[in-house]
Every structure is written in C-alpha cells, then in structure tokens.
Amino acid sequence: MDKFMLRFAGRRSEAFFDCIKRIYVSLKNLKARRQISLEMGAIRSRMKSISESQQRYKDIYGTSDQESGRAKSTWYDSRGDALLLEEAKAVGIEKPKKQLIQWLSATDACGLKVISVVGTSGLGKTTLVKKVYDDPTVKIHFSSHVWMIVSNSFELEELLRTMIRRLVSEVKQPLPQGIKVMDADEMKEFIYKFLQHRSYIIVLDDVWRVGAWEAIRYVFPRSEAFGFIIITSHFQSICHTSSIETNGHVYNLEPLSQEKSKTLFCGKAFLGGSCPSYLAEIAEIVLKNVKVCPL
C-alpha cells in the first residue's frame, strides 16, 4: 500500500494538459502497477499458506480454541526434573555450591538474609540451589525447610496455601482449620507466627517479577528468628532488590568452561560418556557455537 500511495496517489487536476500528462504517466506506470499487483498476490498466497499451516498444527497438537485449556494442562514443565538430578551427574556446581554454603553457614548471621542466584535460563540455577538445600551441613542449621516454585504465573493465595501445607507437614502438625477459605492476609499472619522463634530456609525458585517478592517479603520474620530466603531468577533487578534490603548476597551464575562443557555434553549426548571418534569434529562445532549449561 505504501508503494501504491507513493507512485500513484497524487493531487488530481482537471486541466487538459494535466489529463494528458496523467494518461502518459499511467501508460508508463503499467509495469509498476503490474509489479505491485504481483506482490499483492504473493502476499495473499503467503497469508493463505500461513493460515493453513496454523490449522494443521492445531489439528496435530490439539491447540484449537475448544481444546486450548486441555493443551495448556498437558504442557510439561521440566523444572521439577532438576530437583531429582543426582549430584554425580551435575557438572560445574562445586565452586558456586561451596560459596552458597559458606554464606548460609555464617556464624554472624541473624534475623533474615536473602541470597539470590541469578543467571539466564538453563544455566542450572535450580540444580545448584537444590544441591545446596539438600546438603546435610545446611539442613542441620534449620528447623523448617520449604521449597517453592514461584514462576511467572504464580497466584499469591495458592502460593501461601502451599507454603503452609509444607511447613506444617514437616513438623507433622494438622492444617489450620479453614485454610481453604483463608484470605491472603490471614495466611501471611499464620506463616509469620509459625516461623517466629524458629530457624528456617525457604527457596523461592524462578521468580519473574519484583512484585512477587514484594507480595510476600513481610511474611518472613526479621527478628526473633534465624532465616534465609534463597531466590533464583533470570533478572538482576529482582535479585538485587530482594537481597540488598537484608544485607544479603547475589551470586551471578556463569556458563561452564569449555572443558566442563565438553564433559557435560558428552555425558548427555552419548550413553557411554565419551564422544565416538567419527562424531568428534561435529561435537567440537556444536561446543564452539553453543553455550552448554550445568544441568
């Protein structure tokens, strides 16, 4: 349309010579008009092809409007797999794990401290923090332990309700009466009182918005308790905001070195753990062009 307006949409004059001029120009522009017509036809053809392809994908994957709810429910969230990964199969977590444990074991820590682990998607933040969270030298310091996946689509009341379930389950207490109808403020008050005079470590995995932290930050007692919150996120702003207010720490997780990347890549790509000689050249190309992450 821009091309058409540029070439043909000028002010019209009814003068005789202007009419002659327009006829001459229109004959001269027949080729341009034909070219624009062909381009418009090509666009229509592409739109039709895209529409047909979209319908095929809907038919294959069940993502029609009627089935969109079912498609969403069958989407597989692989973050939980990182919680089951054996430490022997994790590569490159030794140094960051040691640093996090050191922060968690600080003898001068009191009140509440927030430790944040930040890095791009797939770097292994969840794997790293889970290995720290499960370490016996860490667990022994705390009487309450809770792991929460926050995610981008978290709902505050459901998050608080799940946290209460896990807190009371650990100490084998019954759920508070009426938990299903409690509002957010009532659940926050319950969690706050439960954690008072206790030592606790709570992981908030995969936090996407500063607002998510701000919505629950005052749930955790800051005096008369000894607690650590560990946050994992893709976003520096979230990690710094949450950690700085408690004089906590931020750990920036980096990609693996080339040597460790090769070890991890071969372990995942080849069941034997070593690269076959006939694929060595291709493996080197892959490692050169792709950042391999410690998952």
Score class of each variant (00 low, 15 high):
T137D: 11
S223W: 01
M1S: 08
S199P: 05
I164C: 09
Q66L: 04
K291E: 09
K113N: 10
S73M: 09
L271A: 03
V146D: 04
R7Y: 07
C293W: 13
A215S: 15
I101H: 00
A106W: 05
G62M: 01
D183P: 03
E155P: 02
I285E: 15
T246A: 07
C110A: 15
V210H: 07
F142A: 03
V286D: 04
R161L: 12
R46C: 05
I238D: 01
P255H: 03
F4Q: 04
G111Y: 02
Y192I: 00
I201H: 04
Q236L: 11
D108Y: 14
V114Q: 08
I216N: 09
P176W: 02
L30A: 01
R12S: 14
M163K: 01
V146Q: 04
G267I: 00
R12F: 12
V132H: 14
V210M: 14
L6R: 09
Q54E: 06
F4V: 11
S45F: 06
D65T: 01
A212R: 01
K188V: 02
L27G: 02
R46P: 00
Y218Q: 09
P255M: 02
R161V: 05
R22N: 15
S73L: 13
S274K: 13
I23P: 00
L271R: 06
N152I: 05
H197S: 13
F154T: 13
A82V: 04
P276Y: 05
A90H: 03
G267A: 01
Y76F: 13
L256G: 03
